[in-house]
């Protein structure tokens, strides 16, 4: 059974139909990159996977539990699904360390001491151990995003969702964030990444998905999608971004 099974997913905002009929399976340990023009629905699709957007129709089954049926406790599913946002969304009133410790301690999953050790370990992993006591506003965008990744990892998620994690960064900081993500992929994390970084998608993704106008137009291994796109719309899009 796939880790995540999405079937017939539809999402509308009032009269605007953003996702029309999405079918997607994410296997354990797989890295999927979602590409597509702005407004194509790729971020909306990602946000449906942890119910930040409520699906209008269809099913999203994670580890055998349908998160769209409102029976289960969505907060419990979310603990296993980390999310990294375009705008980082660090909590500005807490230090870097406290940002990472917040969820494990307030959900009583770790003692304060355990959470602190975990935080320092994770900060070391993203190369920011010396920033543990800094406030988020003292960090560069790239550093903030790496803290955001560490914060998500503190819950030991099985899946990580990335919503255009490098789009708000200055060009010289994109690399440091992508490197952390690459390392994570190599460690076997299941990842779904909405991105405009075609180089990253080509190098790291097991599968690339091209979304346009609310549908998955094309999907396959990166070399196939990038070198031999079958659909006209994929070709057009790739011509514009590559």
């Amino acid at each position: 059974m796939a880790k995540i099974e999405v079937k017939n997913l539809k999402k509308s905002f009032d009269n605007l139909e953003v996702l029309k009929d999405i079918k997607l399976d994410v296997e354990e340990g797989e890295v999927i990159c979602i590409i597509g023009p702005s407004g194509s629905g790729k971020s909306t699709m990602l946000r449906c996977l942890n119910a930040l957007e409520e699906a209008t129709g269809g099913t999203i089954v994670i580890d055998g539990n349908d998160i769209t049926d409102n029976h289960g406790n969505i907060d419990l599913y979310r603990r296993n699904i980390g999310m990294v946002f375009q705008q980082f969304n660090l909590f500005p009133h807490m230090s870097v360390k406290e940002n990472i410790m917040l969820a494990p301690t307030s959900l009583k999953l770790m003692s304060k001491k355990e959470a602190e050790e975990t935080a320092l370990l994770l900060l070391d992993r993203v190369g920011l151990k010396e920033k543990a006591d800094a406030m988020p506003t003292e960090l560069s965008g790239g550093q903030q995003q790496r803290v955001a990744i560490a914060r998500a990892l503190a819950m030991h998620p099985d899946v990580m969702l990335f919503d255009e994690p490098t789009s708000a960064l200055d060009p010289e900081m994109v690399g440091e964030v992508l490197n952390v993500m690459k390392q994570l992929a190599q460690e076997g994390m299941t990842m779904v990444v909405v991105t405009h970084e075609m180089g990253f998608a080509r190098e790291v993704a097991d599968r690339v998905i091209f979304i346009d106008d609310g549908y998955i137009v094309e999907e396959g291994p990166p070399e196939e999608v990038f070198n031999n796109p079958k659909h006209e719309r994929t070709k057009n899009f790739l011509n514009m971004v590559l």
């Binding site: 946002f85 909590f91 009133h93 917040l102």
Partner: peptide
């Protein structure tokens, strides 16, 4: 809005997110 979303995405309940993240700010 991203503050509430970030807190919820970590598994915090709405009440906890309000108390720990939104209200202090």
């Amino acid at each position: 809005k991203g503050q509430m979303e970030a807190a919820r995405s970590l598994g915090l309940t709405k009440t906890l997110a309000m108390r720990k993240v939104i209200l202090p700010q």
